[in-house]
Design a protein around this nucleic acid. Structure first.
Lengths: 329, 329
DNA sequence: CTGAAAGCGCTAACAT
DNA sequence: ATGTTAGCGCTTTCAG
């Protein structure tokens, strides 16, 4: 085992003091004479000393690291979310360990196994897999985003139900008579399903059939396109789409145009998410914007409280959404 | 300092063996009798033992962590790149420490300061800041992506010059007479400038004026829109745009439409990057696609070799790009 | 096949 | 104001 080139000991020797003193200088702790401080600083510079973070972590029993467990970062919503979480955590002195599960339960479990082993001080999760027991019996501080995990893990979510209502009402106001919805398969433990619930209730209220096309998060773009193609074949009467996320909204519009529909004349589309990247690349999309940055900030706030041992009472927090008026509906 | 609940020692005590033996069972090392193995496993389960990663890191002097230093992950190119790097590193047993600098030199320096302190085994960088000396005198394994950092750090880049040629030739073939380019300000140490060089050389060859609008990476969308608005005011004759990235291409098309230009009839646009998200949200864009996944894989290969102490001879690697035929040019 | 002991680099009582 | 000493939890020579 090759050792670290220069350590506390060497600095101490060169400065003619003890390791303790060097450590104290390093951390500005206790009483030091200015002379000693200078001596030590000089020695540190001369040796180009770099304190070993891992040794400190071991002693302190905390790493100042937070794990982020999400399906992927290659998606407008998660890209913005993880970016924002990183930013907020940085400000509080924490660094981020990425744990993108790629929707692979094994991978998620592997991450957790390692993360629970003293690797991180806390966890922010939003992966799609269910039934991972490890979340249950641990006292690791955890906060979840847009995903129900287990009883005592607080969830930060946007007001999906209200968002669903906004979306569908927009389509109704615009005169749609045949509205179709896309969402995950029922059964995934996600507040996302509130969007579907809102859709179904409004359809019932207006005596319209509720038709949901189920689109799994992790299938390929080609497969998704195929499903949407089927949608237009099976339901040529469709004149309004409430997509559960902007990416699907975009794919649907592509397929719709291939089927000769003009948007918004023949077909109106409302998406969901309103992430930065989407707003840049697809500004014409009418969508329900989630307060992603605020969700990140809230999650970090909550997590920090947990990591500092405070008891938390707000089990779950819901944040307001907002209709972005594009030209597609 | 509160200690870890259950450690090797406790397992050893319960199993009636020494710490050494437990460690050996844990790592499948040396000769063990099946009986001992079983005993130890049983004790570990009974106590729900979790080995402390940090202690192991300290002893081994390696963390199996790789730092990723990029400007942001909230952008189609970097989102895909970091996602892919994470995926590749995971397969090789490494985890990723995020270090998004937000184009803030202080933040980048802070990350590096910490990362060099034994926190990571290697670094993959692609941040935009220059003149950070820390990269120079370190023997930390580093690989760079699309960014020149210092002499002995290998760079993975796509063939930007060829891409620039492809883009401009496409516009010329389509009959453009007044082609304008966007890029970073000159002076940033990026292979990206090869795109500009290709543009300028082709313009010269065709006796056309080379006009580049300089757009900094980290200004707001509004500021970018303002620059592009100026572009159409100052150069109403423009009939072709070679944007240095797809996001700018998208913004330019938005502004162009506001100026009453039809695309591609009045204005042809070619972008650069061709990231997953862009291809999904903006499939109609004609663009030069970088082999992002391959760049990630190559970078990780190289880094792994460096981390394993192998000498590397390929200082820099260039990967081929590809024209994606959309409808915008 | 197993154990005792030393040590990875740093910090913090406790003592002076 | 500074030094001595005992760990943080794990791995690995070395000895048996």
């Amino acid at each position: 085992m090759k050792k670290q080139a220069v350590k506390l000991e060497h600095v101490a020797a060169l400065a003619g003091v003890s390791k303790t003193t060097v450590s104290r200088v390093l951390n500005n702790r206790g009483y030091l004479s200015q002379k000693t401080i200078d001596k030590v600083h000089k020695a540190m510079e001369e040796l180009n000393y770099r304190p070993n973070v891992v040794a400190r972590q071991l002693y302190k029993q905390r790493t100042k690291l937070v794990g982020l467990v999400f399906p992927t970062v290659d998606n407008p919503f998660f890209a913005q979310l993880e970016s924002q979480l990183d930013k907020e955590l940085y400000l509080r002195g924490y660094r981020v360990l990425m744990g993108n599960s790629q929707n692979n339960p094994e991978r998620e479990a592997a991450y957790l196994r390692q993360l629970f082993n003293g690797q991180v001080d806390g966890l922010i999760v939003g992966a799609h897999n269910e039934g991972i027991e490890q979340y249950r019996d641990t006292k690791m501080p955890i906060v979840s985003i847009e995903r129900w995990v287990s009883r005592d893990i607080p969830v930060i979510a946007s007001d999906n139900y209200a968002g669903g209502v906004m979306a569908v009402e927009r389509l109704l106001e615009r005169g749609c008579k045949h509205i179709i919805h896309t969402n995950y398969p029922n059964g995934l433990p996600s507040p996302n399903l509130e969007r579907r619930r809102a859709y179904e209730e409004l359809m019932r209220k207006h005596n319209m059939p509720a038709i949901t096309y189920e689109v799994n998060f992790d299938i390929t773009t080609e497969e998704k396109l195929k499903i949407f193609d089927r949608l237009f074949t099976e339901h040529p009467e469709v004149d309004g789409i409430f997509a559960d996320n902007d990416t699907n909204a975009s794919l649907i519009m592509r397929v719709a145009r291939e089927h000769g529909r003009r948007i918004p004349e023949d077909l109106k589309v409302v998406g969901f998410d309103g992430a930065n990247i989407t707003q840049t690349l697809l500004p014409e999309l009418t969508t329900i914007k989630q307060p992603i940055d605020q969700m990140a900030a809230t999650a970090v706030d909550l997590l920090q409280q947990r990591m500092e041992g405070k008891e938390i009472h707000d089990k779950s927090i819901q944040l307001p959404v907002q209709l972005i008026e594009g030209t597609t509906a």
